[in-house]
Design a protein around this nucleic acid. Structure first.
Lengths: 249, 249
DNA sequence: CGTGTTTGTGCGTTTTTGTGCAGGAATTTG
DNA sequence: CAAATTCCTGCACAAAAACGCACAAACACG
């Protein structure tokens, strides 16, 4: 088994169960605990997991630990949120994924807006619920504790049944070669279904994540219609995406 | 159980109940009181809790000198929650409604419990999610902003598909003549479906609501198996319900 | 091709960490 | 003030991590 392969497996396990024990992983993959420890250390250095004595925890776990921690790059995310909101008009059916950027958008929705928001992200739903005029549809299924969204076949089936006007995706990684990628298997399934069920797909991403990639493929660039970052649309970083036929806001 | 994990659980408990006892935590998590004390000390050093003799307090508790923002009849609800939890064992599939009594139950679930909880109540789901070993299934559909649960035909259909081991209902009104009643049409539909889909139906209700009724009928008394209040089972108020064949805890 | 280098992995040994226990000190409580 | 808790200190012990080393496979390159 290749090292990369093994680390992808470990990361998947962490995202799935929220915690892993070095000991159990070592018998799982049949390598020494030392190797597991080294893998965890590398993943921790890349910020993918949080290493603790005895194993590792998913990132979401520590968010519980630092509750009022200001969101990473919040000011950029607010800028992105503003641009995204300009695409929304009354009466729309809107699918959204989870993630802090989406959350920022949910918080910034103008109070007189009347629209229907559909999501499986608990955090996003909580924001939408506070809004006076928004209709909220919650996609049900098993809850993934790591990503705090509903995942599974029921959720996917439910998304497939609808045809939303627009879909906003919090994006973890996007580049020209790999398209949109992510690191959580179950989240990827959801996002794929959302893309298929929407007339228009909009990716929200901070510039930092442009031209990066993650282990799991979601879709090619040609599936998405629009890309929103905090940068102006004429930033040179955006040029290749515009050339690829994506509208950049 | 990892140390960080345990501390996260403790912190959560502190934030929920505003206080924790080292002694009760130690039997809950099944570690020595010494370990709990050391955890509390670390959390205190990080400023997450305030350590006091015998346990710890939440930060909000000491800052705000109005500690009387308790949930209505909280102490009774805790008592009810304890009784309800005694009915749960590992591996069970459990349907729950919403309401503050159910919430109190969710907060008091012992950390080593492994079970599957199914609910459409956003608040309850949030509590279940914090629990280390519980599998959470969210019932999706439109969210009713008044009751903060998912309501509608999809939700009901989903509930009909399952057969849970036990169902806990937060009960708004119960009396001999009208059975169980409520005042929200959509919530009533949900509760009816839950009752039909469970092998055992348990009503949680503070004594104050015994022998009261509300406009909308949910079901007759013979549909429910058990009634839990904060009163002892031999309280005269309970007598007629025992006579009606309901087990009272 | 051969040889030096890098990389990935496992194995002891030593350190560090996490946990429980015992006994005495400090504190609450009635 | 006396009894009962709770806390602190030091210690023991096991589990995990860190470190250094060995070795083999992959790679680099003249």
């Amino acid at each position: 088994m290749l090292k990369k392969e093994r680390q992808a497996y470990i990361l998947h396990q962490v995202n799935l169960h929220n915690k892993v024990l070095s000991s159990s992983l070592s018998v799982d993959i049949n390598v020494s605990e030392d190797t597991i420890r080294r893998d965890l250390q590398e993943l921790a250095e890349e910020g993918k997991v949080i290493k603790v004595h005895g194993g590792a925890l998913s990132h979401s776990f520590s968010q519980v630990h630092f509750p009022v921690n200001e969101v990473y790059s919040q000011s950029q995310k607010i800028k992105i949120a503003q641009k995204a909101i300009s695409l929304i008009s009354n009466g729309m059916f809107i699918l959204t994924s989870g993630g802090t950027t989406i959350l920022e958008m949910a918080r910034s929705l103008p109070p007189q807006l009347k629209a229907t928001f559909i999501s499986g992200s608990i955090a996003a739903i909580l924001e939408y619920m506070h809004h006076p005029n928004i209709e909220v549809i919650l996609i049900g299924d098993r809850i993934s504790k790591s990503s705090k969204i509903t995942v599974g076949p029921e959720a996917i089936a439910k998304i497939r049944q609808m045809k939303a006007d627009i879909c906003f995706l919090g994006t973890n990684a996007i580049d020209l070669q790999h398209g949109i990628t992510d690191n959580d298997w179950e989240v990827v399934q959801l996002k794929r279904a959302m893309i298929e069920s929407s007339q228009k797909v909009v990716c929200l991403s901070i510039a930092e994540k442009i031209n990066t990639f993650q282990p799991i493929h979601i879709c090619e660039l040609n599936k998405i219609d629009m890309l929103i970052t905090e940068l102006p649309s004429d930033d040179p970083l955006m040029k290749p995406y515009i050339d690829a036929g994506i509208k950049v806001l």
